[in-house]
Nucleic acid binder design. Sequence first.
RNA 1: GGCCCCAUCGUCUAGUGGUUAGGACACCUCGCUUUCAAUGAGGUAACACGGGUCCGAUUCCCGUUGGGGCUACCA
Length: 492
Amino acid sequence: MSSFVKTRFAPSPTGYLHIGGLRTALYAYLVAKHNDGKFVLRIEDTDRERFVADGTMNILKSLYWAGIIPDEGVMFNANQNIIQTGDCGGSYIQSERLDIYKKHADELVANGHAYYCFCDSARLDELRQFQQLNKLPTGYDGHCRDIDPAEAKKRVQAGEKHVIRMKMPKEGETVFNDEIRGEVRIKNELVDDQVIVKSDGFPTYHLAVVVDDHEMEISHIIRGEEWLSSVPKHLQLYKYFGWDAPRMAHLPLLLNSDKSKLSKRQGDVAVMDYVKKGYLKEAVINFIAFLGWNPGTEKEIYFMDELINDFDLSHVGKSGAVFNLQKLDWYNKEYIKSLPLVDLVERAKPFFADLGIQLNKNDEELSRIFALERERVTTLAELPEAVKFVFELPNYGASLLIWKKSSVEELKNIFSKLSELLNSIDEKDWTKQNLEIRIGEWIKENSYSVGSVMWPLRVALSGQENSPGPFEIAEVLGKQESMSRITIAINK
RNA sequence: GGCCCCAUCGUCUAGUGGUUAGGACACCUCGCUUUCAAUGAGGUAACACGGGUCCGAUUCCCGUUGGGGCUACCA
């Protein structure tokens, strides 16, 4: 076996990509990239009841948004069509690999490692109820395990409804080494004779995952902790097929604030929810990367390429991590503050479009406007509301103009003189720096208190109780609009 | 119920057989300041419990408790 690293993310298209799934995908991606290996995307759509038609596309787009691009397997092209690359002897979509699973299942039956089971769901339900009632361990009782194989085959050929179950040894113990948890041992007698082929002919996860990971030459299985207890089944299948098992890493779960498994009930869990809310991919990636992993240093800000450099499974923790929105918000603010303005403009535009707002300004103007508020918003979705006052002066009450330590008389006096001063400033000198100097000097000359000038000026320009400083706003607004807003204030 | 996994500030976490148990978010105080934000300086706050082992345990072992996962012809 070569030491080439190949990881995979293998989601089910049951609706949308879960934020926990994104983290699993990220870790798998990082392990592959850190080791100059390959990252495979496979679609596990063997559950026809939960299948959602555009589920695959949603997953692919969510991953693409986050910058997690597969090297092999399922992806989409410029025309938004789902395509595949790579050679694993078939499709990377499980529903298109049925013959492969059938071949392997038949092989197990032929070798006596699996058997046909004719128990219907009524009997199984009854069995489970009985076990639960009598506080017995639940599980299949082996009812069909010892049916004569020749007879079973006849019944199958006669069209009798059936599934295929793998034979789990009744004795011994399965011991394996998890990359994160270390040695784990589970007694074989406690492990069920798992159904590996359903009555509809589709494989269950357990068969499909083993066959595919082998045929796709996956070196590291990286998945959620919920799979830990089914590892003995998988290992047994590898043994039956005579294959080497990949290395395995079972990641700790993402939790709600009450420590239960992260769920829809307690907040947004779909990656697209966070996209729509205006979180930056850099923030989301940085945040989820740190939910369970850390570099062992005090560096908190990590871009994808830095994660690829430093990520290491050995630094992944064992305990579940609470998904803490406050920390995500902090990361998002950090990235919004540090994003180049041109990028900020590009990424913010869709949030205006979503609200039906026409941005009749060029990018240059927009970047100046957005720069005004970028330190004040936590998400891109907040930006339209935050910069609204630039486009249209809000209607505010006249009393807002009066600074707490000032009076109406003083205000009127100051404003009329201020208006003259501003009018005397040439349009080409209408810059933040220049205005600050001129008005500063003027305040000093007249011995005004700073607030008695700055507060009303800022309110006049912004129409808001809270806003950026008056000079920044004035520069963005330009002389004409600024003067018009001051006139409006004076008239109030 | 059975099996498996886990346990350091409220949250994400670093860390060690002997440390003032470190950082980040959040929170609080102060500074800057026309407001908000940003920012600077501080602060509150943790080794779940009980037994061992050891000169010495937060660290190693066992147990308890707590939390989580699995226990499907779902993944």
